[in-house]
């Protein structure tokens, strides 16, 4: 047998071809509903945690869609939907200089200090 084509089983639900498949990269994107990042509070006492993103026409629809997509099994008690373009992020190019100041301050960690083993509750 010669299939003559390359396949990957990596695609979850089954073998998918790897050759002659267009990736769509480099083509202009069409206008779509805005992207929202979704944060879910799993239960009381926990922070909201980022779970993924989705598109919605407006804020209200974003919360409804988030409920259907990310909380089908009681995964949350509260949802935040945030327009992705409103999020301010640190730049990946600057990540080294940005986080540098914390790099050499080992004295901020409790393990920096030698305490005799017989001192209790410390």
């Amino acid at each position: 047998m010669t299939t003559g084509q390359k396949f990957s089983a990596g695609g979850g639900h089954g073998a998918i071809p790897l050759e002659g498949v267009s990736t769509g990269l480099g083509e202009p994107p069409q206008p779509e509903w805005p992207l929202y990042e979704i944060f879910v509070r799993g239960k009381r006492g926990l922070n909201h945690v980022h779970v993924g993103s989705l598109h919605a026409a407006d804020d209200e629809m974003a919360v409804r869609h988030a409920r259907d997509v990310y909380t089908r099994r009681n995964e949350g008690v509260s949802i935040w939907a945030v327009r992705a373009d409103l999020i301010v992020a640190s730049s990946p190019d600057e990540k080294d200089p940005l986080f540098d100041p914390a790099g050499d301050k080992v004295y901020r960690h409790p393990t920096f200090y030698d305490i005799p083993a017989n001192v209790p509750h410390m």
């Binding site: 695609g11 979850g12 089954g14 073998a15 498949v21 267009s22 769509g24 994107p29 779509e32």
Partner: peptide, 28 residues
């Protein structure tokens, strides 16, 4: 949504599926 983080849009991918330029698992 994971795929969109790589710089493509869902509309574009759906278009490619319908045009037969991208595939899906043969089982279906």
């Amino acid at each position: 949504s994971a795929c969109e983080t790589l710089g493509v849009t869902r509309a574009e991918l759906t278009e490619k599926l319908i045009a037969g330029k991208q595939k899906y698992s043969s089982i279906f």
